[in-house]
Design a protein around this nucleic acid. Sequence first.
DNA 1: AATGAATGAGCCTTCATTCAT
DNA 2: AATGAATGAAGGCTCATTCAT
Lengths: 203, 203, 203, 203
Amino acid sequence: MARRPNRTARRAQIVEAMLRVMAARGYERSSVAAIAEEAGLTPGLVHYHFRSKEEVLRALLEHLEAILEERFVRFSRGAANPRDRLAAFVDAHLARDASARPEAVACWVALGTEALTREDIGAAYRDMVGRHLAVLQGLVRDALDAAAGDVARAPAIAAGLYAAIEGAFRLAAIAPGVIPEGSAASTLHAMTDGLLGPREETP
Amino acid sequence: MARRPNRTARRAQIVEAMLRVMAARGYERSSVAAIAEEAGLTPGLVHYHFRSKEEVLRALLEHLEAILEERFVRFSRGAANPRDRLAAFVDAHLARDASARPEAVACWVALGTEALTREDIGAAYRDMVGRHLAVLQGLVRDALDAAAGDVARAPAIAAGLYAAIEGAFRLAAIAPGVIPEGSAASTLHAMTDGLLGPREETP
Amino acid sequence: MARRPNRTARRAQIVEAMLRVMAARGYERSSVAAIAEEAGLTPGLVHYHFRSKEEVLRALLEHLEAILEERFVRFSRGAANPRDRLAAFVDAHLARDASARPEAVACWVALGTEALTREDIGAAYRDMVGRHLAVLQGLVRDALDAAAGDVARAPAIAAGLYAAIEGAFRLAAIAPGVIPEGSAASTLHAMTDGLLGPREETP
Amino acid sequence: MARRPNRTARRAQIVEAMLRVMAARGYERSSVAAIAEEAGLTPGLVHYHFRSKEEVLRALLEHLEAILEERFVRFSRGAANPRDRLAAFVDAHLARDASARPEAVACWVALGTEALTREDIGAAYRDMVGRHLAVLQGLVRDALDAAAGDVARAPAIAAGLYAAIEGAFRLAAIAPGVIPEGSAASTLHAMTDGLLGPREETP
DNA sequence: AATGAATGAGCCTTCATTCAT
DNA sequence: AATGAATGAAGGCTCATTCAT
């Protein structure tokens, strides 16, 4: 039953290599050879650890989601109220802090196109959107609740915010500068405030 | 005695074919042969009318923008005030009326990925974003003006709205159903209202 | 019976265009479209005047030979003795005077490769070599005769000279500068003298 | 556990195949598929071992030069004086002994055409001509020295001889029979004697 | 676990040639 | 005579995947 200890490590190494290559070239033009080279491995080995290139893509989707999740947890650490947790969700996606990874953002954009086209990537992507949206709706509902707002508006607001986050991702990757340098997150915070009403002072 | 030229018509025919194929497969997997077949032509002829596959993509970008432009003009027709013109801008992108083209939406998503990767598609895409954003800022400023709002907020609001529109495009294509069937536009309208404040009654 | 007056002119125009294009690209990469464009015509018209691309090549071979012939006649004009006529033959091939055409030289090189490969070009080329060699042998024999040399050496000397001329052509085109600028002809003249013995003074 | 590399052997195999195919068809019409088939390999494998078809051509140029070099060394083995070494140089190019390779001669002709057209093949070709010419000049100078001839004539004589050798190559390939069967070498020897004066008896 | 060779299918593109006008 | 469109057959090259070692 002894697992080869580098099985997991190797897979992670390959997925990370794909993250970098795919950010620069998109999925189709990320050849297995290029991914292997970026990882410092040989093409054959990639197929030893993954059944196919598409399987690497699926693993990459999970990896990207894990990165987001980790950031959300970290940004939420100091969040004392619903509004702060909402801001943490936005920051997890858009804050350009030291741990930000522009390649990951580019990957999300490329991944969306694959989700559009490949059946099982699409399914996985939709699952993820569902989970994210559920979280976001919860946060919005809490925030509305706290502000004595109309909780029935939560789904629409959550959907709008999620769309805005995805769009900001996209714009940040494709047309950086359109949303002033590094301020995607603050633009989104302003939007959040616009949608939820001004924050209450917590005395 | 010369044969009647038909370049313009043929080019349009090819671009439309690519629109359909690319919506289903993405750019890289839209082979020239598949595009030609969709158009009822031979692969050689595609290259007779376009220098390269990428040139078809550039033409497609223009075509897609023209479609949006035409819709915006049409939806603006009855718009009496800034707020309505703003709604027309949103509807041009997201309304699911009879003239809506889901393939075009899918194409925008795929196109973004190519913009990320191909230098001149990226440049053309950024140009377009610049133009759209300028229009949108104008509309937002007018709307704020009419509502006696703070005009200085226009750039941030416009950027946020544009991001939301792009994101809604993306979600509509990749995960239809997340934003309730056909209501992407109304979600965005609600967001607009949230950002600009309630509409004034025009007595 | 009235010939269309431009039939001949058009053919010449096409052959001259091919001469220029082929000098720059070689035969295979000289597309009919490129030749037509160089001639200011359309591709279809080339095939109206020539059955095939190879037929243009055959016409070009004749054209190139005619250019050489014309030069030989011209350089021979003032030649008073066999030795001068021999020099004229060399100059017809190698002199870099105002009427020299470097493209023609390059074409000869490219043409040789086609002669190697295409049956009927090869045959035409060998015919031409035969004619040239006959002329050259005559000249050498006359020169040996006048110098009281051994006429039996004529074939070998003629063959050697002809090889040297062909080789000088080749070097001039491929590695200009190896044979000092413009001195291919004088190098060949020196070789001729070496082979035939010093010239007699014509008192 | 790794597979034993065989790059060098495979590359040589491919280059030799190209030598044969190119002698018969010229460069452009030597398709990678044909080369692969001649080598008993698949087309994909050719591109696994060479970046491009042109890289095979570059390797072929080196291979051809190595063949000449080897022959020169071999023919020089018994050469006791400058004149014999000169003869060895000529024989290395033109002697039709058992080790002679007519395909190699045809390849040289075809290669010259490519040198005319392709920038880096041209550069490599000119390099080689420079090296050959330097060797030849040295040999001619030694021979003139030994015969108490005018050493200043060495460059012109060397250039003339080299041109004659190249031309004989060409004629031998394109119009065999013009220079009587197998006597290209002896014709060149005669030319050499004509240019350097009669040999001295070595008592 | 790992390597490097090998395959086979497919892709973009070029091009000589034909043809309707 | 002339044009411009159209075709069909390659051709060079890439690449995911398999496999012997």
